[in-house]
Design a protein around this nucleic acid. Structure first.
Length: 311
DNA sequence: CCAATTTGACCTGT
DNA sequence: ACAGGTCAAATTGG
């Protein structure tokens, strides 16, 4: 895979940062405005998350740890060992034959809740770690095979009271699954090492085109039934969680911005989707007249990133 | 039936 | 040798 980020001047980077700062400032001003009573909590929470997204993006850009801008990524293949796969001919025997991550280009986040980061994740493993109270959960991007997206993450509960989770992100999302309501809510008790743990992951991806037998090969790009190329993104919330599809996992994903248009609309639904401790999510595109809509013009902020992928 | 999760097997790096 | 990371069969759920 070639780099989504060609060489660019530090001037471009500077401008991108400036625009992000500007966007964050606008959001802050918006936050002030909606601080007034009258349904403020819902919107305020959303704005907080938007601001977090900006801040996170900025910190990523400024981070040495994560090469986001200015340094083209090497091929994901380069970051993995080749994997010997000795002695295996049958499919069954290929178990455990994989490419292990060599370098640790990671981005660690810790938070008290497990709010969705806007990407579709698929759990592929769980492991009890030595001297760790809670097991570590392994996730990879749902589009690992259908779009060759190499992003993955590990989630581990590191503290119970108050609950604290550490999420370590590896790789970068190259999938174009950006504008979608994908929420992942992990009930508090599910990360406590209980084997009955359940990770609830809601994703409206319909066509995952997962190839169980497609082993480290390069699947043809699937026919994508889902129409997520709309220019207006709708995000749905439960009563307490509002999800941003922004690349707030600490990595910018310029490719996903392609053709994303100039407006991002966050749709906050009335709190009606949570019941009896079980979270549910209905379809994303649903919009209600009761919804509180916050339209934010991200055009200028994103322009730079789109520019990056064009020359 | 299909997709997601669980979980033991198995591989790699140290 | 061992701990951590990944795979994939079995299981679960919609």
């Amino acid at each position: 895979m070639e780099s989504p980020l060609p060489e660019n001047s530090s001037a471009d980077l500077k401008r991108a940062i400036e625009e992000l700062i500007r966007g964050r400032e606008f959001t802050r001003q918006l936050k002030e405005i909606i601080k007034k009573p009258l349904g403020g909590e819902v919107a305020k929470d959303l704005v907080d998350k938007i601001m977090d997204s900006f801040s996170e993006t900025l910190s990523v850009i400024n981070s040495d740890d994560v090469r986001v801008v200015g340094t083209p990524f090497s091929s994901p293949e380069d970051n993995y060992s080749s994997g010997s796969c000795k002695s295996s001919s049958t499919l069954k025997d290929r178990r455990g034959c994989y490419k292990r991550r060599k370098t640790s280009e990671s981005n660690i986040k810790e938070s008290s809740d497990l709010v969705d980061d806007g990407h579709a994740w698929r759990k592929y493993g769980q492991k009890q770690i030595l001297h760790a109270t809670y097991p570590r959960h392994y996730f990879r991007c749902t589009h690992k095979y259908d779009q060759k997206c190499q992003a993955s993450k590990q989630v581990q509960k590191i503290q119970d009271n108050p609950p604290l989770f550490r999420t370590t992100y590896y790789g970068h999302h190259t999938c174009k699954a950006f504008p979608r309501v994908s929420s992942q809510i992990i009930l508090d008790s599910t990360m406590d090492g209980d084997s009955s743990s359940v990770l609830l992951s809601f994703d409206q991806n319909v066509n995952q085109n997962y190839h169980p037998n497609c082993y480290n090969n390069v699947p043809t790009f699937p026919s994508i039934k889902q129409e997520t190329k709309e220019e207006v993104f709708n995000f749905q919330s439960s009563s307490s969680d509002y999800f941003l599809p922004a690349a707030n996992d600490g990595h910018l994903t310029p490719a996903t911005f392609e053709g994303s248009g100039s407006h991002m609309t966050a749709t906050v639904l009335s709190p009606d989707v949570m019941s009896s401790g079980v979270y549910s999510s209905s379809t994303t595109t649903a919009t209600s007249n009761d919804n509180l809509e916050i339209g934010i013009d991200f055009e200028e902020c994103l322009w730079n990133f789109e520019g990056y992928s064009e020359h």
